[in-house]
Design a binder for these strands. Structure first.
Lengths: 182, 182
DNA sequence: AGCTACATGTAAAGGGTTACATGATTTT
DNA sequence: AAAATCATGTAACCCTTTACATGTAGCT
């Protein structure tokens, strides 16, 4: 049940239409919870029916822009969700599986894939670092108000994860390169 | 399409019945691709129909143990999958979302949740390190044959990820603790 | 009027999760 | 024989993914 709460958070940060939300997801919240426009429209409908958000009172029609904002009940629901006990989502990482499969059956093409992934993760890392430079310059970090500090921790989670994969992939390529893989 | 290949890998390492596979998943492959017995039985049926595995020729009946082994076609399919181009799975991490929601709406209960997750990740890390001590003692690492080295990289992925979450959660708790969170 | 971009939505397929159902085997 | 346990399997639900469909607005 993360998507509806991700949407509530995004709408609290700024009221938006469905497509606008989709685009904002693509470059911020979506880093930790990606969603397509289909998912977002469906959830917007449910959230509105549940009375947690509302669309601006306009005659609704198919192709017309609908702007949503969070109602007090939505804010309350989000606040409750924040403190709920929820176990961490289990990891699902196919690349690691493929390495294990390669250990069992051999794998000629794997090194190339590892290099490709390394490049993808390096690119994502660079994007995160660029956002950090732009949104969290040194002086703001010293200021000590809580909100930017928390948002910075969110970004830091992404940075650290990408750094980790870069490191792991590099080390794995070294091991793989030590002798030819049949 | 990772689950069928995870199962093929496990069956190559050792032919097993469905329930046995489920238990083995719980303590090795499942660390990177968890699966319940329902998923596993469903996939075993599909893999058998596809001619990638076979069950020992016994009169099949509902409650009787069925042992599966990989056929040559299955090994070939796995080998092909290993080298295929597949983008990394996008991250989905609710805890990071919750932190971002807390930045927007406040969050009294979050610190407790962060501490609970910290403990869970510390426990998982300890389990991985125990496995490493048991299965990859120093002398085997020096030997230089490839297969254990690759399997060690798999375990190392888990260790590094858990270490990372421990570090991130610790740092986040510090930021959160600097002042009270409303 | 036709074209393009914008915006919302529907449909179908597949995987994961949870709860439940049933047959076989072992234990008491 | 009853109970507990092992083992396989069904069913329903939800979420995600992909492809497609429809309506609106602005421009030429």
């Amino acid at each position: 049940m993360s998507l509806p709460h991700a949407i509530l958070t995004a709408l609290l940060e700024r009221p938006s239409s469905g497509l606008e939300l989709t685009r904002r997801f693509d470059k911020s919240i979506g880093f930790f919870w990606p969603a397509t426009h289909q998912q977002i429209y469906r959830e917007l409908g449910r959230l509105e029916q549940a009375g947690l958000i509302r669309s601006c009172p306009q005659p609704p029609s198919r192709g017309r822009r609908k702007e949503y904002e969070v109602l007090p009940a939505g804010r309350a629901a989000l606040l409750e969700w924040v403190g709920q006990a929820q176990d961490p989502k289990p990891v699902r990482e196919p690349m690691v599986l493929r390495l294990r499969a390669a250990a069992a059956v051999g794998g000629r093409g794997l090194a190339e894939e590892l290099r490709r992934h390394l490049e993808l993760h390096e690119r994502q890392l660079a994007e995160y670092l660029e956002i950090e430079r732009r949104d969290f310059p040194a002086e703001r970090l010293a200021a000590g108000d809580r909100r930017p500090a928390l948002q910075h921790r969110v970004l830091r989670a992404g940075i650290g994860l990408e750094q980790y994969w870069v490191e792991w992939l590099t080390g794995t390529l070294e091991v793989l390169g030590e002798d030819s893989v049949d």
